[in-house]
Design a protein around this nucleic acid. Structure first.
Lengths: 200, 200
DNA sequence: TCTCATACTGTGTATTTATACAGTATAAAT
DNA sequence: ATTTATACTGTATAAATACACAGTATGAGA
């Protein structure tokens, strides 16, 4: 997908915001006003560029006829994570779900599909989607997504200091994971905000 | 809140649908076309009635300037259910969450807040919100919301025939619930589509 | 009986809106 | 050196749109 200029990106963000706050896309004039353009045609041209690049669809002859391309909407679902690859790498994103609203306490960066039963006792089971926020300021007791030597795992953060981290599975069949941070690479990838499960 | 006529309700539903599928509210003409009105003014009048009754807000002089009142948007969360009252009775709705999208396999009529630990072993724990669809065509193995003599409960549907129903808690500390439908009142209130959990 | 709300058709128009065309200017690509 | 993309202003206009006013018809309530 072709990259956007700074201005185009600003415009796309504005359109997206107007849709979610006003319930309808902006007109050319409204876009021009927002950015201080003296001619609505500036907006028109940016819209055409966004359309050409595939980020939006313009519905000719229709007032407020702007729709944002669905593949940019929605939150990615990260399935199997290839060892060593960034979580949000294209090859790890199995699909996206449309999802807007204030369901979770913070903004959701992505959903991670849960594998295994190591968190069974807190109601997180195989196949569940857990909502993740990428910020790093997690605290003890939080359920976190962590990366230990290229492996991604979901556990409760039980202990954390300069030398040692302890991750706790919530299943009595599993033992705590102790990481010696001086010899193993360790990273917090995000905090678990909640759980989404869909029965078929 | 004043009640809507059948027509007004149809129009409100249509507007809501257009917003979610097209990404923008319809024009008067589009409403008229949908319902076969020969004059766009019919749509205009229905919109005025909906505005007057508080269901929508009309933004004067703005194309597609229709917004649906937020208190009618979102899906109700049903908390404690007063014995004998309908699940969706006002007094049982603790709040609503904005929620649009195709997260669950079917349309969600409401969310029910889970009490107790009787479904722990399938990952449904106290405080979870379970997404419910009101239709009655459930099958064995489905997790259902059932009403037994004025009490509402969430269990797996294990057996169902003309005389007897068995509901199974998913926790070995609980026993199956057998209902003799000839002497006890029994109703399926809905099918559980999924689970939503939000950590704070 | 009269009024009022609902549910339409039909006409008209001011305003909003999309969108084309003609320019100016700059930076990157060929 | 010339094209091409970006980023604007300014003008113009056809089409889309909101919305008022004038009717017709029906059923409910006062």
């Amino acid at each position: 997908m072709r990259t956007l200029t700074t201005r185009q990106s600003e415009i796309l963000t504005f359109i997206s915001k107007v849709i979610s706050t006003e319930g309808m896309p902006p007109t050319r004039k409204e876009i021009a006003q927002k950015f201080g353009f003296k001619s609505a045609n500036s907006a028109e041209e940016h819209l055409k560029a966004l359309d050409k690049k595939g980020y939006i669809d313009l519905h000719g002859g229709t007032s407020r006829g702007i729709s944002i391309n669905r593949s940019f909407l929605g939150i990615p679902i990260v399935g199997s994570v290839a060892a060593g690859s960034p979580l949000l790498a294209v090859e790890n994103v199995e699909e996206r779900i449309e999802f807007n609203g204030n369901i979770f306490s913070d903004s959701v960066d992505y959903f991670l599909r849960v594998k295994g039963d190591s968190m069974n006792e807190v109601g997180i089971i195989e196949g569940d989607l857990i909502a993740i926020n990428k910020r790093k300021d997690v605290k003890l007791g939080d359920i976190v997504v962590a990366r230990i030597n290229d492996d991604v795992t979901v556990k409760t953060l039980f202990h954390f200091d300069k030398k040692k981290v302890i991750l706790r599975p919530e299943n009595k069949n599993y033992k705590d994971i102790e990481i010696n941070t001086s010899i193993e690479s360790f990273d917090i990838e995000g905090k678990c905000l909640g759980v989404l499960r869909n029965y078929n």
